[in-house]
Structure formats: C-alpha cells, structure tokens
Amino acid sequence: MKILVCITHVPDTTSKISFTENNTKFDISGVQFIIGPYDDYALARAVELKETHSASVTVLNVGGAETEPTIRKALAIGADEAIRINAEPTDSFFVAKQIADVAKDGGYDLILMGRESIDFNGGQVHGMVGELLDLPSVSPVMQLDIEGNTAKISREIEGGKESLEIGLPFVAGCQEPIAEWKIPNMRGIMSARTKPLNVIEPSDNEKKTALESFELPAEKNAVKMVDPDNVSELVDLLKNEAKVI
C-alpha cells in the first residue's frame, strides 16, 4: 500500500503572531515552526499503517527551502521519502493543484492530510485535491481502518460522529484521535538524514486568490473582576452592560 501524507510547515501553536513590511509579511522572528498539528495526526496514522499493512509513506510539502527541517522531522517520525514542491503556498487552489499533479501518477492508495492548516485555516485543500483527481474526499476523520480495499472511517459531524465505508483510493483530512502524535527517536533522526527528499518545481503557476495584507484583532479591554460572593453583579453586567443574556 502507498500512502501520501501532505504536511504544512506552520508556526508552533504557542506563537505570537505579528507582521512586518506594513502588514504584508508574516514576522518569522522568534517563531518556531512545526508540522501542522492535524497533519501530524495524519502522519502518525500513516506510520502505524506502515507496520500493520506494510505501507510505504511519502510526505509532501509545497513550500520554500525553509520547510526542509520540518520535512526531515516527518522522515524521522517514520516516512520513507519526501517531496518538496518548491513554491510559496499562498493560494489553496494552487497548493491543491500541485499536490494533485504529483499524486496523479503516483499510484497512492491513500492521500492523508490534516483537517486544516493552522496558518490559513481553510480546510480546503483535501476537498480540492479530491475533486481534481475525481476521488472521494472525507474530513474530519477521527478513525481510519483499512480492510482489503475498503476503509472504515469515523468522521466528526456537528454534535457527534458518523461511520462510513469508502473504497480506496480517497483523500482524507485527519484529526485526533486517529492516532497519537509520534516523537522521533534517535534512530529515526539518524536515518532521516539519508532518506530521499526530492525537490521539484511547480507544474504551473495558476492562482485564484491573492493575499493583499494582514490585520491583527483589536486589543481586548481590561477584565472587570466580580466578587465571588456577589455573583448577581455578574448577572447584571451580562444583562445590562454586555447585553448577551
């Protein structure tokens, strides 16, 4: 079985977000980059399937050279090889098209992604890749088991979950508790250095959206404290000041 896992290279979840150059560039100073948390779940499940279904795992990232340490980390966690498509990922259609072009002839049985990237939060790329390849897409997947040519899936829906069965191949956007995040061990880190990481140029340059500028949310007002022995004051504030109840 061949699995393709698409990973993003995103600021660590504790990062403070700020911008430079007149709010047109993300400020990377002091920011630690990680594999997107949802992509990390997808990768962890793929590595598990390696053991149970003797799968081979390819990780793919659309990004500049700066993403290579993140890609190497995915190799250290257990992916066998990596592809980096050398382009800045600003438009989700562009990213999806690049992924689809690689996947088209790759013969992958499964294409796993995160439910969403935590930088652009589109939740779009898996659906687009599915449509471009005319394959089913399903997200957010909380459980994924493969039996022969069929996958049994549990998908989160608002207020609960849904079980479904779907034939391979397909595209899935993953989230917990599909697998536990894996931490690379020493052996993994050593072997990652020699695993293949192929860099390819984008197949085209069509983009459908353009990023103009960034904004930060307005500062919050200072918190108003209420005495724990006087909770009716809170009720009054919520009713008459905030007007939310």
């Binding site: 989700s92 999806a96 939740g123 659906g127 599915g130 989160e156 829906i157």
Partner: peptide, 18 residues
C-alpha cells in the same frame, strides 16, 4: 466541517476562486 468540504469541491468544479 461539511460546508468546507463541499465548498472546496464546488470551487474546483466551477473554476471559482474560494
């Protein structure tokens, strides 16, 4: 979760920006 998935596919089908 359904809206996102549907939106992505509709955008590709209709050559729309999303």
């Amino acid at each position: 979760s359904l809206g996102d998935a549907v939106a992505a596919r509709v955008a590709v089908k209709t050559s729309a920006s999303l």
